[in-house]
Design a protein around this nucleic acid. Structure first.
Length: 209
DNA sequence: GGTGTGATCGTA
DNA sequence: ACGATCACACCA
């Protein structure tokens, strides 16, 4: 029997700000969910995130306005935006604000804390536990999230799925690592240093540039 | 350790 | 045509 993770679900007001402000504060918070098949409790500590700043950001899905795909980003802060990319991967974001401004924080990597067996079952290719959630698509796969989780409320749900981000008292690093974002092509906002990570943590997806 | 490349398909 | 990527091959 695993112990219950203590902590406080982050309130709506936490997300209702510019993603560049929210992102570094999400470091060391816990992503908490329940495995849809086994019912196992899944917990991982966020160690790497990226901010996407809506209309100010050529790298954001929301840069060219609202579409069916990115509609969740234009909705309520504290929603989960899950999108499909490269023909095979799902990635998850925390929708930010302020208000209906379509900011979001991409959840890029996390350190597994609880539910490791369920994560391993969902990520059989992972050779080591440090790889289970080391990348946005890996993290999303380890938690079993896909398009069905798009629009989930991280604050009050479960609306479509029990996903939360919880503060268990571990503060974000005083001085996070900062770099340009991964996978952004030139001229699409690649100059912005909006990636934040826990320096030296082995669960970060890759070395900074 | 690092770099290069194919997979695979929804979206604009 | 091109991705907010991953895994594997290959070289060092």
């Amino acid at each position: 029997m695993t112990g219950r993770a203590r902590g406080t679900t982050l309130p709506r007001s936490f997300y209702d700000r510019d993603a560049r402000e929210v992102a570094p504060e999400l470091l060391n918070k816990l992503l908490v969910s329940v495995d849809g098949e086994t019912g196992a409790r899944l917990v991982a500590r966020l160690v790497e995130v990226e901010a996407y700043a809506g209309a100010d950001d050529a790298g954001s899905h929301a840069y060219r306005g609202r579409t069916q795909r990115n509609a969740t980003m234009f909705g309520r802060p504290g929603s989960l935006y899950v999108y499909f990319t490269y023909g095979m991967h799902w990635c998850a974001n925390a929708v930010c604000g302020p208000g209906a401004v379509p900011h979001a924080v991409l959840l890029r990597a996390a350190a597994p804390v609880e539910g490791l067996d369920a994560m391993r079952a969902r990520r059989p290719k992972a050779r080591r536990d440090t790889e289970l959630c080391a990348g946005p698509a890996r993290l999303t796969a380890a938690f079993g999230l896909d398009g069905r989780a798009d629009g989930t409320d991280l604050v009050r749900g479960p609306v479509r799925g029990p996903v939360r981000i919880v503060d268990d008292g571990v503060d974000p690093p005083e001085r996070p690592g900062v770099s340009v974002r991964i996978g952004i092509s030139s001229g699409r906002g690649d100059e912005h240093p909006w990636r934040y990570y826990v320096t030296g943590d082995p669960h970060v997806s890759r070395s900074p540039r």
